[in-house]
Write a protein that binds this DNA or RNA. Structure first.
Length: 497
RNA sequence: GGGCCGUUAGCUCAGUCGGCAGAGCACCGGACUUUUAAUCCGGGUGUCACAGGUUCGAUCCCUGUACGGCCCA
């Protein structure tokens, strides 16, 4: 908390602060005293209902609206201004004659661009053809002490855009639009999931064990309990406990946290939606995934998307192919024709870094990541991931080296991960043991051993299909956003020194 | 973690082969009752990211640091 009155260091802030002081002293007017303004019309409403007005026409309807003054053009006894609200923006026409001398002069003297104002007036169209509001009353609702970013170029500095998102949102209406679309996507998810009888639940983000994914967690300490705790890396294991508990179909939309690097596709905290359906398998879930992605696309602009210049077709059905097929297609590697040593030889020839202990299934996964992943531009369900890298997925009974699991790739990036859930507690214990060995061998991302989760499975998890979708990434593709930071309101930033 | 690039006025950006720091917008004062990047007249508001070094002199050259961006792992 700043002590006393912090002296504003920059000139415009100083001037505006002084102006506020004079406004209070000379006019006895406190712009921050307002508690409300009964805004009855949005600017979109005016646009939708009065676009028929011809030049120089005016409608008698009284509009009561409010917003931020973005620009003011003063012309002596008349002014034009641009008002922006949460829906749109519109020109204001302020005249001495229609407002009265005193209120008009008050506006001219005390109101600045950036200020929040309440407006009463009539819809009109100026002789130059611009739909406007002819103002009869303008109430200063809150004063802006800092100037708006440049009106023509807007705010471009990425650092300020992310650190002071409020300024970004004022200056760049497209950014507001991106976050509205993000909200639509999440709302579409809820709508689709609930139409399928799923209920929304909340499970711990703070827990004594971080499971459900292979990732490093953030750790913290609970003082009263005297124990180390972790921020969750995925909600999966809790959600499946709820299926054991007979909730039938559950989903959760929320944050998970991974203590990893920050880049164009990764933020330490991110939003995912995970859903689990009792009595469903991974094929049912693949259909659900398609439905969710398509419904989201429909909600924000359609199934023909352009991402960073590349057309993406989100018309179902999406391509479905196994990891083994895709790797064979692009490298010639045939998993069923080689043993581990031959697989490693193949990988070495392809230039992969091989330490000599990898199984052919690990090699398959690495070949996929190196030679296939980036090329999956159009939506593709990659099916049949190796059991070795899928500690929570049910094995394929026809080939237990693989699981009934898929990942959805769009634009070379993993957007969804799903499988028929492993519900055999004995098998699950073995998988955890295998992960424990990997952890002991130095793999910091190996899955933690969760004894209580095994305990839950011992009560009986029905056959279940589960899915996780990265909301941030899906939003990126549907809003043509280059960086994950463009779809997270307040992305993680290093504190300024 | 490695490499490259950036940091100059509130914003968008020039610039100085090392010699008083620049523009547009914004802002301040004035004129103007149909403008919309309004116009006209007048006004420059700055720790050139930070800390060292070289130099008569550094915003510029060198080194380091911070923050950001891009690429790679």
């Amino acid at each position: 908390m700043p002590d006393e009155q912090t002296i504003p260091e920059d000139e415009i802030l100083k001037q505006r602060t002084d102006k506020l002081k004079r406004l209070r002293e000379e006019e006895g007017y406190d712009p921050f005293a307002h508690e409300q303004w009964k805004k009855e019309h949005t600017l979109d409403f005016v646009r939708e209902n009065f676009s028929h007005l011809a030049p120089d026409d005016r409608d008698d309807t009284e509009i009561i609206t409010a917003g931020r003054l973005m620009t003011i053009r003063r012309h002596g006894k008349a002014c034009f201004a641009n008002l922006a609200d949460e829906t749109s923006s519109m020109q204001l026409y302020l005249q001495l004659d229609s407002m009265g001398e005193e209120p008009y002069n008050f506006f001219k003297k005390w109101v600045d661009s950036g200020d929040m104002v309440g407006i009463v007036g009539n819809p009109c169209r100026t002789s130059r053809g611009e739909l406007s509001i002819l103002v009869t009353r303008c109430v200063l609702l809150a004063k802006a002490l800092r100037p708006l970013p440049e009106k023509w170029h807007g705010l471009k500095d990425t650092e300020i855009r992310y650190r002071q998102r409020y300024v970004d949102l004022i200056a760049n209406p497209d950014v507001r639009n991106t976050f509205r679309k993000r909200a639509s996507i999440i709302s579409t998810f809820r709508h689709v999931l609930e139409a399928h009888g799923s209920i929304e639940v909340e499970t711990p983000t703070l827990a004594t064990l971080a499971g459900g994914a292979n990732a490093r967690p953030f750790s913290t300490y609970h003082n009263a309990l005297g124990v180390n705790m972790f921020l969750r890396i995925a909600p999966e294991l809790y959600l499946k406990r709820l299926i054991v508990g007979m909730l039938g179909r559950v989903y959760e939309i929320g944050k998970s946290f991974r203590n990893e690097g920050i880049d164009i596709m990764h933020n330490p905290e991110f939003t995912s939606m995970e859903v689990y359906w009792a009595y469903a398998n991974y094929v049912d879930i693949m259909n659900l995934t398609e439905e969710l992605v398509v419904a989201s696309a429909d909600a924000v602009g359609g199934r023909d998307v352009v991402y960073q210049g590349t057309p993406i077709s989100l018309h179902p059905p999406f391509r479905r192919a196994t990891m083994a097929e895709l790797v064979k297609e692009s490298t010639g590697f045939e998993i069923c024709a080689v043993d581990d040593a031959q697989a490693r030889d193949f990988a070495r020839k392809k230039g992969l870094d091989v330490d000599g202990k990898e199984s052919r299934f690990i090699i398959l996964t690495e070949l996929f990541e190196t030679f296939v992943e980036d090329k999956l531009i159009q939506p593709t369900f990659v099916i049949g991931l190796p059991t070795e890298v899928s500690p929570l997925a049910k094995k394929n009974p026809e080939d237990p080296n693989f699981t009934n699991r898929f990942e959805l790739y769009i634009c070379g990036s993993e957007v969804a991960n799903a499988f028929s859930e492993l519900n055999d507690p004995l098998d699950q214990r073995e998988r955890f043991m295998d992960q424990l060995k990997k952890k002991e061998a130095g793999d910091e991302e190996a899955h933690a051993f969760d004894e209580d989760y095994i305990n839950a499975l011992e009560y009986g998890l029905p056959p279940t299909g589960g899915l996780g979708i990265g909301i941030d990434r899906l939003t990126m593709f549907l809003t043509d956003s280059r960086s994950i930071r463009d779809v997270i309101l307040f992305p993680t930033m290093r504190p300024k020194a």
